[in-house]
Structures are given as C-alpha cells and as structure tokens.
Amino acid sequence: MGYYDRIVYSLRNVTNIKGKLKRDPTTNESVSSALAAELTIISTLLIASLLLRHINIVLTIVVILGLGLILVTNMPIIPKLKREQSDSLEKMTFYAILTLGILITLIYWGTTNV
C-alpha cells in the first residue's frame, strides 16, 4: 500500500474513530472532539519540533519529516494516548520514574559533556 493510500486510509480511520473509543455511546460530539484532539496533538507536536531550529536546521527537517510520517501512519493517536493516560497507578508510576530518569540523565550528562 502506498503512502498516499495509507494517509487516506488512516484519515478515514480517524473519522471512523467511534469504533476505537471502546463501548462509549458515540455521538457527533465525541467524534468531533476526538478529531479536534487528534489534529491538535499532531499540529502542536510538529510546530513544537520547529523549535529545534535553534539547535540545527538539518536536524529540524529530519525530525519534522520523521515525526510527520510516524504520526500520520499511526493516525488514531488519541485512543492510544488516552489509554496511556489512564488512572492506573502502575502507568502513572512508570511515567513518573521515566521522567525522573530522563531528567537526571539529561541534566547530568547534558552539562558535563556540553
């Protein structure tokens, strides 16, 4: 399947998002809000990655192209994201510890090696 087809397919998937939203009784509202959330997260991620231009232009182009490709091919992101942001203690602890690890690594290695 070509990328064009895949993009169209995944866009159709987004509009068909009610299947992905578990057993919630689906209304126009929930579909439109899922779409809005989807578009928001994709566009903000892409715009935010533009901030990398302060570091390196080539890196920015590569990151944006790669990120755009990944985002579009995994299109209904919001159901996945919502599953990850659930109220389960295990997931919350996992993300907390992950953040702590990234923070300490970045701060320690980022300063001593730059």
Binding site: S33, A34, A36, A37, T40, I41, T44, L45, A48, I78, L81, K82, Q85
Partner: peptide
C-alpha cells in the same frame, strides 16, 4: 497540550 487534549476526551 496533554491537558487540553485529555480534557476534550
């Protein structure tokens, strides 16, 4: 971003 997208859902 997360606050707002989660709020919609």
């Amino acid at each position: 971003v997360l606050g707002v997208t989660m709020a919609i859902m």
